[in-house]
Structure formats: structure tokens, C-alpha cells
Amino acid sequence: MEILLKDIDKTNWTKCIFLTTDPDNNHYLVEEFVASNAVSIAQSKIEKGWITKAIYNEDVMVGFAMYGYSADNGFFEICRLMIDHKFQRQGFGRKALSLITKEMSKNKDCSEIYISFDSKNHSAKKLYEEFGFENTGKILDDELLYCLRI
């Protein structure tokens, strides 16, 4: 298993927007715990500072990430991290999280990385806490806000 972060371009954007966390393979603008990849890609074109990447297991796209500096919030943030329902619980999210945080930490101004998630998303909570993110005790857009100090 080799997890890679690849740019989203004209060769893979349609595959990316049809990834979904929905076990019935339905597609929504806002899924149970995350905005759709289509919404995220559109947001990244309107708001400055966001980086979007497709998450691959070798040559198979398994997920999507959006991260960067949130001008609205004034901090570095992993705004979106999703693994398609067909590939969940296989370690892809953990490996992608490791790659993303390493990429973000290359920025000399990045000493903390924030991530927020729905309090009902117990899998995300477990993953982020095991990875070293700590609860800030704050709420961002009705989600728990966690922080990883680099």
C-alpha cells in the first residue's frame, strides 16, 4: 500500500467528485459528515489558500483532502478529509492524514494544524485523537475543533 496525494486536474476531477462516504453510493452536496468534493473544489477556486488533493492508493483514487490557510479563521486547517465508502477502515485516512500534516508543516508559518468534525463522527474523533490532535474546547461551524501542535 502506497498512499499518494495527487493534484486534481482534467484527468481525474470527475472521478473525484463522484467519490462518496454514503454506503448506498448516493451523492449529496453535503454528506452526513462532510461537504461533497464538488462543493470543496468549487470553494477552493473562490476562497484563497486552499489546496485540494486526491488521495490515491497507488493508482486507485480512494479519497479527497482540502487543506491550507483559512483566512476566515486565521489558522492552518485541514478543512476536508474524506475516504470513499468502499475504502474506509483500511488505514487510508490515517496514512493520508500523515502525508497532509507533513506537507502543511513544511510551511515555516505553520506551527499548529486545526481540524473540525461533527461530534457524532466517532471514527474521526478516534483517528484524530490517536494521531495527536487535541480538543480545543471550541466549536467551529457547529463542529468540534481540534488542534495538532507541530
Rank of each mutant, 00 (worst) to 15 (best):
I8F: 11
R89E: 15
S70Y: 02
E134L: 09
K102P: 00
K102V: 02
H85W: 13
Y56V: 02
L140D: 10
K102F: 02
N135P: 02
Q88V: 09
L4I: 12
D118I: 04
I150R: 02
N37K: 10
Q88D: 00
S98T: 13
K138A: 12
I78M: 03
G137T: 07
F75T: 10
G63F: 05
T52R: 07
H27G: 01
V62R: 00
S111H: 08
R80K: 10
L145A: 14
F117K: 03
K102Q: 11
K15E: 15
I41P: 06
V39F: 07
T21E: 11
A35D: 12
L148K: 08
L29G: 15
N121G: 12
T21K: 01
A38V: 10
K45G: 10
M66D: 12
E77H: 00
L19A: 06
T136K: 14
T20V: 12
A65Q: 10
S44N: 13
A71F: 08
L99T: 09
E129I: 14
Q88S: 00
H85Y: 15
E2D: 14
A65G: 11
F33D: 03
I150L: 13
K108P: 15
S116H: 12
K95C: 04
F133H: 05
A124Y: 11
N73S: 06
K138W: 06
Y128K: 09
L99W: 12
Y67H: 07
I8N: 09
E31Y: 08
V60T: 12
F75Y: 15
N12H: 12
E77A: 00
S119P: 14
K120P: 00
Q43N: 13
N26Q: 12
T52W: 09
F117L: 13
H122A: 11
L5D: 02
S111C: 02
K53T: 03
C110Y: 01
K95H: 09
S36P: 12
C16Y: 01
I83C: 06
K15P: 02
M104W: 05
C79V: 04
T52F: 10
I150A: 00
L4K: 15
E129L: 15
F75A: 08
L4V: 09
D141G: 03
E130Q: 15
E103V: 04
K102H: 08
S116W: 04
S105P: 01
N12L: 06
E58Q: 14
I46T: 08
A124R: 13
K108H: 07
S111R: 01
D72A: 13
F117Y: 15
S40K: 14
N135F: 13
D24M: 15
N37V: 10
S70D: 13
A35M: 10
N26G: 01
G63D: 06
L4Q: 11
